[in-house]
Amino acid sequence: MANKNHRAPLSDTQLRVKALESVLLEKGLVDQATMDAIIDNYENKVGPHNGARLVARAWTDPEFKAQLLKDGSGTIAKLGLAGIEGTHIEVKENTADVHNMVVCTLCSCYPWTILGLPPTWYKSTPYRARAVRDPRGILKEFGVEMSEDVEVRVWDSNAELRYLVLPMRPEGSENLTEDELAALVTRDSMIGTSVVDAIN
């Protein structure tokens, strides 16, 4: 199996991962239970539903919203939503004057504990290249025509801070419960490439 071709950069990905898994487990350098817990956490536990709950609560509880905007890290830590790629969290509120959008141009930094692992498009070359330069074009691709008068403010999360967008509460949602509101909040609206649509 070991030959020069085997080391070609992108060949035999599946076999190479299997080889690493075998030898690291055999040597006791990783623990199977730890690996299982990691996969379970990112596949089944964390995800955009965490962020949606924060947003819905912020829409209905002004005191919570003020806390979240002032001290995102402290507020989410109290809720058990801190952790790897979720320790230093800043929440940015969309208003009638400012629309926020988040990118990581240098890699793919993302608030894992609140939104889960990032979707492929967020990690893709075109998004990372274009978000800082053509955010309005990206919004259009996601179906949002942003008024010229609104400031589109892009957050490049190149250091250890991770950003969550607090979308605007949609029109027509006045009578909804917190749970019903959470169900409206999309992942993309919390990245800022989209908005939460008005309810007809």
Partner: peptide, 29 residues
């Protein structure tokens, strides 16, 4: 940041967290 010519952003509807099993494993390792 700021580069051109990489084309449109392809969004996969209802994208799974992982597409193949080795992706789970390399993350966990």
């Amino acid at each position: 940041g700021g580069m051109d010519n990489f084309g449109p952003i392809n969004v996969e509807p209802n994208e799974p967290v992982f597409h193949e099993d080795w992706e789970r494993k390399i993350l966990a390792l």
